[in-house]
Nucleic acid binder design. Structure first.
Length: 826
RNA sequence: GCGGGCGUGGCGGAACGGCAGACGCGCUGGACUUAGGAUCCAGUGGGUAUCCCCCGUGCGGGUUCAAAUCCCGCCGCCCGCACCA
């Protein structure tokens, strides 16, 4: 009988669905395990990245199930988003909802073809009103606590996507989705106050022992905590103060100028009546017209201009000129910085360009004197304070504290912790998203939509035009409503929410996807959460993963959940490459999962993506590698279907202790179980797990050739069944078929994961290595249980070893039990 | 510039500080066959005097009886951040 993957895979997929094999109960006496892969955006068809992500998750889910866990393994759709709307704009006759549903249907069918063990009853799409009702409801929870607010700000605008973007969605000055250059626009937009959680998001990273360091470091950097002091500088001739933020208060006496961001609100006042006013204004206009990418590139030279105004150093009372410059950002700190050319590289360059004085106030400890003229770069390290009045002689670290305290006492400043993280801009000027549930009444102003009126439904009939304004603004039926307070005429907010909001809470919804009384049933959420293992691409390290953590902390605070972190363990899988590059249409190196499944079968393709590389590493696609996996499955098929007569072997007790080849095979079986268990369920090194199974299969091919009378049927049965059980999470269809063919009634996927007997894996004889001066010279077969001394004796008595070391003086002998003996000679 | 990761045969990749190259691909030879792009068997890091020895994990040092693995300094590639005061 030949291995017919088409037939087998179809047969079992139907059977599993009919038997509801992957339906998981919410409450069970077994320990729970929540295995989750990042749900996909339904972009059209499944790609290799999805395939790899879900193959990894499926092995974990299946092996944990076999280990006796009650495993939640769901799948759904991150279904709101730009591509659907762009398709509508481009093709005109297709509605985003229909486009999305079509894609979902295609991709669901593909996922089913791959035989993943999802509990499909829990499937949902975030664009369904039953889901986004609760997305809106959650927005209101933020709103009621002052954590969702609207403000006018200079925001990132992508002209190509015709919408604003969050900071996290801008990479190197370009839109991370379409790579178009991002502009700054002054707009009133909705924000979520993620900055209120900056400290906890940072501090709790330490709890995440099961996350890759790389991701934690990226988040830490993104949150960007820094300790410093906010210092007030009095403006001359005006009753105004300029606040600056600095991490180097110890250099306060070295300030020779002050710089404001071009957008700083005080600039206008400072310029009033100054002859410089016109020049400064034109400079500011020029800078603000630059795109984000031009403005922030480090290669761009620092440029600035004197405002004509001065302020006073709060400690020395020196007169300090005030500049405006392109390198100061309004959004960070106070939007103003003190210039200390001697001890900050940017200030150093700026001062040289504009001939500003350089004043050394920190002296390196081991050098006599630092001459200003000899400075070729700013001195950034610690040292001793000089030219700093009463603080002279203090080590700079102590000086930081001393000056901070002095400023605080005098009311001239205060210590402050600053974060780089900004609030999350969630408005999008697009149709295909969850409407922000807010109305504007001419009388009562801005009001949240009452919870009883949710969901605010998306109207179906709208015109899709890339106008830069939400299509909802042109939809009278949607726009006009009545005020929930006074009943008068009101207008709806027409912006929709960033789709990252939808994906910030979906993992809670999987516990009760049809819940109508709330976003979820807390009893069920408390059973399943946190997610035990989350799997996805590293590209979400600071987008989705940070937002999800933020939501979780907020939901915890308002009592909706009991966990403070969403994902206990995180696995970031590598990319799938072809010819050394990421698969992409433009490079023309895309391999479609669909074609591969048709040509080789789901089991083979799954096996390949798991075998070709460990999960975190990038994977190079190789069709020859796929063929190798196909060959292996055929080998397994022929091995198991060979004439072993397994059905007639009782799995009861063995008659006698197996000897010789039978003992070897049994030992290898148990050794394989041990290694595959570790690699599959603990280390997630599926490639080595599979190679270990291959080795057992290879050995069994040898065993098959042993005369039947010399083989013990129980040994064969145990070995073959172990191969099937260990392989079942990787190749679920073929193992299920072979399990049935070998006389089993119940699904292989309901069997317990095999366990090994530690006493059976022990070797009685091992090959040890004899080294002379660290080089391998000889191998010896010795009893495994020899002590170090016994090993040493045996090795030194060995004729071949004596020959090698003849005439040499033995300095030392290092025996390592079970491994080797190293003889050090002169 | 800063941060992180990675450099091992022809290729993908294995190796608790202890036999470098498991497993797979490719290649070579053989068997079976009308045929083989199926299957099975054997070989496969380099050098070489070819069952003997030498050299070999990006490069250069160091620690150790012993280093792909640990430490220091370079080089190369990939990813992330990017004037954050």
């Amino acid at each position: 009988m030949k291995y017919n993957f088409q037939e087998i895979e179809r047969k079992w997929q139907e059977r599993w669905e009919k038997d509801e094999l992957y339906t998981v109960p919410d409450f069970s006496p077994s320990p729970k395990y929540y295995c989750l892969e990042m749900f996909p955006y339904p972009s059209g068809k499944l790609h290799m990245g999805h395939m790899r992500n879900y193959a990894i998750g499926d092995v974990i889910a299946r092996s944990k199930t076999m280990q006796g866990y009650n495993v939640l393994h769901p799948m759904g759709w991150d279904a709101f988003g730009l591509p659907a709307e762009n398709a509508a704009i481009k093709h005109g006759n297709i509605h985003p909802a229909d486009w999305t549903m079509e894609n979902i249907n295609t991709m669901r069918q593909q996922l089913k073809q791959l035989g993943f063990s999802y509990d499909w009853r829990r499937e949902f799409a975030t664009c369904h009103p039953g889901y986004y009702k609760w997305t809106q409801w959650l927005f209101l929870q933020f709103y009621h606590r002052g954590l969702a607010y609207k403000k006018k700000a200079a925001v990132n605008w992508c002209p190509s996507c015709a919408t604003v973007l969050a900071n996290e969605q801008v990479k190197e000055g370009v839109c991370e989705r379409c790579k178009h250059e991002v502009e700054k626009r002054e707009l009133a937009q909705w924000f979520l106050k993620i900055t209120a959680y900056a400290k906890r998001l940072l501090d709790d990273l330490r709890q995440l022992k099961g996350w890759p360091d790389k991701v934690k470091i990226m988040q830490e950097h993104w949150i960007g905590r820094s300790e410093g002091v906010k210092i007030k500088f009095k403006v001359e001739e005006l009753a105004e103060e300029i606040e600056v933020f600095t991490t180097r208060p110890d250099t306060l006496f070295g300030v020779t100028y002050l710089v404001l961001a071009p957008e700083h609100p005080l600039v206008e006042k400072l310029l009033a009546g100054k002859e410089q006013a016109e020049a400064v204004c034109s400079f500011i206009r020029r800078v603000r017209n630059l795109s984000e990418i031009m403005r922030t590139a480090t290669t761009v030279e620092k440029e600035g201009i004197f405002t004509g105004a001065y302020c006073l150093n709060p400690l020395s009372q020196e007169q300090i000129p005030i500049y405006v410059a392109n390198y100061v950002l309004l959004e960070y700190g106070t939007g103003a910085v003190m210039g200390v050319p001697a001890h900050d590289q940017r200030d150093f360059e700026f001062a040289h360009k504009y001939k500003l004085p350089v004043k050394v106030v920190i002296q390196p400890v081991n050098l006599k004197g630092t001459e200003v003229d000899s400075l070729t770069a700013a001195y950034l390290d610690e040292g001793v304070m000089v030219n700093s009045g009463p603080f002279n002689g203090l080590p700079s670290e102590k000086g930081k504290k001393a000056i901070s305290e002095y400023l605080e006492v005098k009311g001239l400043g205060c210590r402050q912790v600053n974060y780089r993280l900004r609030d999350w801009l969630i408005s999008r000027q697009r149709y295909w998203g969850a409407p922000i549930p807010v109305v504007y009444c001419t009388k009562c102003g801005q009001l949240p939509v009452p919870e009883k009126d949710l969901p605010v439904l998306l109207p179906r009939k709208v015109a899709f035009k890339p106008t830069g304004q939400s299509p909802l603004a042109d939809c009278a039926e949607f726009l006009h409503t009545t005020c929930p307070k006074c009943g008068g005429p009101a207008q709806r907010e027409t912006d929709t929410m960033d789709t990252f909001i939808c994906s910030s809470w979906y993992y809670y919804r999987f516990t009760c996807p049809r819940e109508e009384k709330g976003p979820w049933d807390k009893k069920k959420v408390d059973v399943w959460l946190p997610v035990d293992q989350y799997i996805g691409g590293v590209e979400h390290a600071i987008l989705h993963l940070l937002y999800a953590r933020f939501f979780t902390k907020f939901l915890y605070d308002i009592g909706l959940i009991s966990n403070t972190e969403p994902f206990t363990n995180m696995l970031t899988q590598g990319m799938v490459l072809k010819d050394g590059a990421k698969m992409s249409k433009s490079k023309g190196n895309v391999v479609s999962p669909e074609e591969m499944i048709n040509a080789y079968g789901a089991d083979t393709v799954r096996l390949f993506v798991l075998f070709a590389a460990p999960p975190e590493r990038d994977l190079e696609w190789s069709e020859q590698g796929v063929e190798g996996c196909s060959r292996f499955l055929n080998r397994v098929w022929r091995l198991v279907t060979a004439k072993w007569d397994l059905q007639n072997i009782s799995s009861g007790k063995r008659k006698a202790e197996p000897k010789g080849i039978n003992q070897t095979i049994r030992r290898l079986t148990h050794q394989t179980i041990k290694k595959v268990t570790e690699d599959t369920t603990q280390r997630f090194n599926f490639n080595t797990a599979l190679s270990t199974i291959m080795e057992l299969v290879n050995a069994l091919y040898q065993y098959k050739e042993v005369p039947e009378t010399d083989r013990e049927p129980e040994v064969a049965k145990e070995a073959l069944e172990s191969v099937l059980l260990l392989l079942a999470p990787f190749a679920p269809h073929i193992t299920e078929e072979l399990w049935e063919l070998t006389g089993h009634q119940e699904s292989i996927h309901k069997q317990a994961w095999p366990t090994y007997d530690p006493t059976l894996i022990v070797e009685d004889e091992i090959t040890i290595v004899v080294q002379v001066n660290g080089r391998v010279k000889e191998r010896m077969l010795v009893p495994a249980n020899l002590s170090a001394n016994q090993m040493q004796e045996r090795v030194l008595a060995h004729p071949r070893v004596q020959q090698i070391i003849a005439g040499k003086e033995i300095n030392k002998v290092i025996p390592v039990p079970g491994k080797l003996v190293n003889i050090v000679v002169k």
